[in-house]
Design a protein around this nucleic acid. Sequence first.
DNA 1: ACTTGTTCTACAATCGTTTGCACAAACCGT
DNA 2: ACGGTTTGTGCAAACGATTGTAGAACAAGT
Lengths: 328, 328
Amino acid sequence: MAATIHEVARRAGVSASTVSRAFSSPDLLREATRTAVLAAATELGYTPNRVAQGLVTGRTGNIGMLVPDIANPFFPPLVKGATNHALGADMSVFLASSDLDPTREARAVRQMTRQVDGLLLCSTQLPDDTLTALAAELPTVLVNRTCPGLPAVLVDTASGMRDAVDHLAAHGHRGLVYLSGPAGSWSNAQRRHALRTHTRRRGLDLTVLGPYLPSYEAGVQAADRVLDTRATAVVAYDDQMALGVLSRLHERGASVPADVSVVGCDDVLPMGLARPALTTVSAPCEVVGRAAVELLLAGRGGAPARPTDTRYPGQLVVRASTGPAPRR
Amino acid sequence: MAATIHEVARRAGVSASTVSRAFSSPDLLREATRTAVLAAATELGYTPNRVAQGLVTGRTGNIGMLVPDIANPFFPPLVKGATNHALGADMSVFLASSDLDPTREARAVRQMTRQVDGLLLCSTQLPDDTLTALAAELPTVLVNRTCPGLPAVLVDTASGMRDAVDHLAAHGHRGLVYLSGPAGSWSNAQRRHALRTHTRRRGLDLTVLGPYLPSYEAGVQAADRVLDTRATAVVAYDDQMALGVLSRLHERGASVPADVSVVGCDDVLPMGLARPALTTVSAPCEVVGRAAVELLLAGRGGAPARPTDTRYPGQLVVRASTGPAPRR
DNA sequence: ACTTGTTCTACAATCGTTTGCACAAACCGT
DNA sequence: ACGGTTTGTGCAAACGATTGTAGAACAAGT
């Protein structure tokens, strides 16, 4: 049904190789031949078969993207940035959502190898040696995860966290709680570390709870434990948790921000809707997705991209969920 | 670097075809040969090259999925359902987000053809004839869109809308506003039609505003126009718009549900977070995603799946944003 | 021992491209 | 008009698998 290069060749009265060249290296052909071939091609509705191309050239024009959970609102903008940029570069992207299961992660990767020109691994929990092994086979870019020797694109929330601490300290808060995200998460480690550093610098008290799954429900649970502490402010690993906290605090009769201040992270939901609107560290997800693809595409070319970490800083966005510490 | 079938063959002392059969039709081989081949294969870390397989068999083990906007929270659960089920069936999925741009839609499809065994088109705006043409080339399943002759999986919100109308009528509401979604959307047409039917049956007044883009911002805008009408209840095309409406009504000093009742659709965000919690028609997105893949995979086999519409009903979930109509 | 029949494996063609190489035609200056 | 460059095309061999067909090996029936 679908036209092949040979049919186009026959129709144009040339050989198959000429047809191939009309597409891949047009300047090798005489103008007349090229236009004749292209005419024949459009008449037949010919499109090069990417699978066949892939077999001989070894380049498929696809990239594989792996996220822990596409239903986590952090990832869709990332995916959007990536797919959009990929489309611009004439590439398609495979998407797999591993549900945080290493087995599924490995399986998805195995399915994609040899069908893709590169891999985009987002917040992956796979161990360093697996990653380096993978990267030896296939250009690989990490997102929100580092691994020695591998290029990574990172949402840098450290400065945002510093600003959050400063903001809270300026409002008289003395004790902070951090609600940890997933144990193996690079983002979580970075956020916790930044908080640790800056609370110490400011002489504030920091309690770390968790780890929790990054979900609304986990936030609900965590809120109760927050109330057990003497802390007046809580920073959550992400917005979903923060919203859960907000909701549960409301249920428990604690007023935000009068009794407790709450800070989220990522800014991926329309935060105006939460009551009170959530103060959060905003992450430039879409930009990161695009940058990751760019890095992958660049590294794929001549020089193997030296394993640079590209960081995109998040910004503290102050809304209504933070305010002066209550007097005690 | 990567082992080929020939290297395995040489190592096992058999021919390439035997290696191939060891994987694809093991019962044709003597047990001894088969185990020997498999041993050699694992030693070399051999995995069949799906691109090469695809070229000869014509089956790639991939499916292509097209959504209008992956950043719209309706789609991630859908994608999750689809990718998860696909992974179970040893298939990978291409994802493209068209940003509602027909050009990009067409382009993404073109890139994927010949690389996929089937297409999953979600809420696509492409015209019927394009779709039938596409389906002639490639097994195609529609999601939240119908087209004569094509199988479709649909979120059926009609009954949910009926329940919403009944619910509002029971609370004494006499005038309703519907905030339309995108003009070409099947879901929008279905929702509008269901509202039209059931408001008429109940003798209620229905005003249709829009079309609007399905976004928070559009909801904010729409809220002002809602206040210009005499309606006491508003049904929004989706939750994002409804949340925008909620937010703007709050700004304008209108109280929900005391002054105005608000109903959303889809139930894809943690709705507990909105104040008041949003009454909405819940859509079983993940189930639909899975069902769509199943249908595609089934149709791909022997009998071309007869173009059935599979409908999954949404359920009205009553929360705090709806209540008795104000006395006038 | 010779046919007949099984069972297993190898050969070779094929899928739709790309691409190095050879070769023909046209062009140049002399 | 003639060697020597260009320039433009065709041939054929890959790429890594699948699969129809044919033949080797062996067992059994007569």
